[in-house]
């Protein structure tokens, strides 16, 4: 069943609603240092950051991970699901990003299990009892989306879209930017979200890559700030 069906579409959109306590602050942690050093100081700078963030960082990591998890779940290969979670955890080099992603995963998992029966999430919950370091947001999100029958394209597309809007919302307050500038950045990036999703559908595990060294260094430096705009 496709998310073109209205109830499914609304369901997947609601997964990203702020009422789910989903924290995408992780994405803003790296951006904060750029804003403080005035390297991101305008609409154009923010658009440049969003471009690399969607077109490189997310697509070659999170989007591939969602796709691979769907593939392994379809084959009912639980060992490979665990392997992918292990790799995703190791792939996040910066501890602050890791912790934020896990925190979001824990909140999301707890909330979902408290509101409905989910055999896959219950199994996952059991599995990570002694390895809660693997409980990243993107893993829980993928497991739930697969179980609910959301199609892969929409699962990746909405993930990218809401990551983008979250980032822009944080930037608007921190730079600061006029709301209309933020809307322009978001609207201009929509085509990119679409293209990135199309591309993600053709990528595989071996295509994972890390070119976002600047973002990593910024996230590393964030830990040593005395006062922080964004915390997890």
């Amino acid at each position: 069943m496709s998310t073109n069906d209205s109830p499914k579409l609304l369901h997947i959109l609601h997964m990203h609603h702020s009422s789910f306590l989903k924290s995408q602050v992780a994405h803003a942690i790296g951006m904060e240092m750029y804003i403080r050093s005035k390297q991101i100081n305008s609409k154009e700078d923010l658009a440049s950051f969003c471009h690399s963030y969607i077109g490189s960082y997310l697509i070659y990591n999170d989007a591939i991970m969602i796709k691979e998890l769907f593939l392994k779940l379809k084959k009912n290969d639980w060992d490979q699901v665990l392997y992918l979670a292990e790799i995703y955890n190791a792939r996040k080099n910066v501890l602050e990003l890791k912790k934020t992603s896990r925190q979001a995963g824990n909140r999301f998992l707890d909330r979902l299990l408290s509101i409905e029966e989910s055999p896959i999430l219950s199994k996952w919950s059991e599995e990570i009892k002694d390895r809660d370091s693997l409980n990243h947001y993107v893993i829980v999100y993928s497991l739930y989306a697969f179980e609910k029958g959301f199609d892969l394209f929409s699962t990746i597309q909405t993930y990218l879209y809401f990551s983008l809007t979250n980032l822009v919302q944080h930037a608007v307050r921190a730079i600061p930017l006029a709301p209309k500038d933020a809307e322009q950045v978001t609207l201009e990036a929509l085509a990119e979200v679409d293209q990135a999703t199309e591309l993600a559908m053709t990528l595989h595990f071996k295509d994972m890559q890390n070119s976002a060294i600047g973002l990593e260094i910024s996230a590393m430096q964030h830990k040593y700030l005395l006062s922080k705009l964004f915390i997890s």
């Binding site: 951006m31 390297q39 440049s48 077109g55 060294i213 600047g214 973002l215």
Partner: peptide, 8 residues
């Protein structure tokens, strides 16, 4: 892409 913010 490498020239953009966040990359190299």
């Amino acid at each position: 892409m490498l020239a953009h913010h966040g990359m190299t």
